[in-house]
């Protein structure tokens, strides 16, 4: 059986890739994809822990996370489409009407 630490390291790496992706990417769609990678890393963690402890709760949580991610995707992509219609671009550097 694959030890728990492998799963945890993999999900930690995935989560970090997601965070770095959000921070360095300039394309709103790519940022959104990076956020999805973060959420999937969390799902992996939950499933791994659930398998190790034998409690099914973790796997149920994954369903909740998937539902939430789907709802977020619907709203988020709609917002990005609205931006694209008015700006013809999804580059976050060009969305800069407000600055302090």
């Amino acid at each position: 059986m694959i030890p728990l630490s492998y799963y945890l390291i993999l999900s930690g790496v995935l989560f970090s890739i997601g965070v770095v992706g959000v921070l360095i990417s300039r394309n709103a769609i790519v940022i959104f994809m990076a956020i999805e990678v973060m959420l999937n890393a969390v799902s992996l963690t939950l499933v791994a822990f659930s398998q190790q402890t034998g409690s099914p709760a973790g796997q149920v949580f994954v369903f909740l996370v998937m539902t939430i991610a789907a709802a977020e995707a619907a709203v988020g992509l709609a917002i990005i489409i609205v931006i694209f219609r008015s700006k013809e671009s999804v580059n976050v550097d060009e969305v800069n009407l407000m600055k302090w």
Binding site: M38, V42, F49, I79
Partner: peptide, 29 residues
């Protein structure tokens, strides 16, 4: 401005959700 506000709120909010959820997963573990 309203579009921009929504996009910034969405990206930052979803980003922070990832952190919160990872924290919950680790505590569950």
């Amino acid at each position: 401005k309203s579009n921009e506000s929504a996009m910034k709120y969405f990206l930052m909010g979803a980003f922070s959700t990832g952190f919160l959820l990872y924290g919950i997963a680790l505590i569950y573990g």
